[in-house]
Amino acid sequence: MSTGVGSAERILGILDLFTENRLEWTADEMMAELGYTRPTLYRYIKTLKDAGFLSQNGPHGLTLGPRVVELDFLMRKSDALLLEGSAVLKDLAALHPATALLVRWYGNKLLCVASEVSSPEPKSSYPRGRPMPLARGAISRAILAHLPRRQMLSKIRENLDDLRELGMGDTVEEIADNLRQMRKGGTLIARGEVTDGVVGIAAPVFDASRAPVAVLCLTVDRDTLDDAKLKELSGEIWAAATRLSDALTHMRIEDVVLGEL
């Protein structure tokens, strides 16, 4: 079997088929979806099964395998964002009945990597590993508004229809201008865009390059908020995101210095 880039991309294409809405696939369904020949697909499936990334479920079905769990365990022990952010989440959740979220951004996805729930009846709860819409909500804006201009414009074009629907503007430039204005206010706030009746209050987390890599967010039942409480929580979230950014930057600088010794 070839180990070139093409083969790697095709193997990743098989793993990308699995979503919350589609947890099991047969080989025939994979062939119809991906267009791979049967011999090629079977080689890839065998490779993934042998490595533990796929498991057989009954005579025909395939699901994700135990290696995924193993890698998640290792990520929890090594991911600086998680290691530094877990305590921050607990502190935020203690401020007000809410769901506190730590969300990582990569590619075209926003992915919840940790959460803390303090509300007795949460209206919004994203467990670890569940993706979120890139163009909706306070979390999305906390990323988009702080991207470098070229990257921001690219992401706006990719999600233009959704952003127009939300009233963010009609053109790419108009939406970009609105996002730049939003970031001047500190935290990014959205009302009911992802979950009805919920207010999202979000702030970006930066790494040493000063690019947004993640978001801290509180999702709060709007009926428990007044203007004073919203202002208070906004300040707390921004301060927490700043502390987390500083911690990640400090860790990165230490890594660079140690690497040069």
Rank of each mutant, 00 (worst) to 15 (best):
T3S: 13
V5T: 14
V5H: 15
R10A: 01
I11T: 13
G13V: 02
L15N: 05
L15P: 08
L17I: 03
L17D: 01
E20P: 15
L23V: 14
T26N: 05
M31P: 05
A32M: 10
G35Y: 01
Y36K: 05
Y36I: 00
R38G: 10
T40S: 06
R43H: 10
Y44A: 05
I45N: 00
K46S: 12
K46D: 05
G58L: 02
G58C: 06
G58T: 01
H60T: 11
G61C: 08
V69L: 13
E70R: 13
L71I: 09
R76W: 10
S78T: 13
S78W: 06
A80H: 15
A87Q: 13
A87P: 14
V88G: 12
L89S: 09
L92M: 07
A93L: 01
P97A: 07
A98W: 00
T99Y: 06
V103W: 00
K109L: 15
S115K: 08
S119T: 13
E121M: 14
S124W: 02
P127G: 06
G129M: 07
A135W: 02
G137S: 04
A142I: 02
P148A: 02
R150T: 06
M152S: 08
L153R: 11
L153V: 08
S154G: 14
K155G: 06
R157H: 10
N159Q: 05
D162Y: 09
D162C: 10
L166C: 07
G169C: 07
G169V: 05
G169D: 03
T171A: 07
E174G: 15
I175W: 01
R180D: 03
M182Q: 15
I189E: 01
G192V: 01
E193F: 01
P204M: 03
F206A: 07
F206K: 07
S209Y: 06
V213G: 09
A214I: 06
V215R: 10
L216P: 06
C217L: 12
C217I: 10
L218K: 08
L218T: 07
T219W: 12
T219D: 09
T219A: 12
T224A: 13
K229G: 03
L233Q: 04
A239Y: 09
A241L: 05
T242W: 04
T242R: 12
L248Q: 03
H250G: 12
R252H: 09
D255G: 15
L258H: 13
E260C: 11
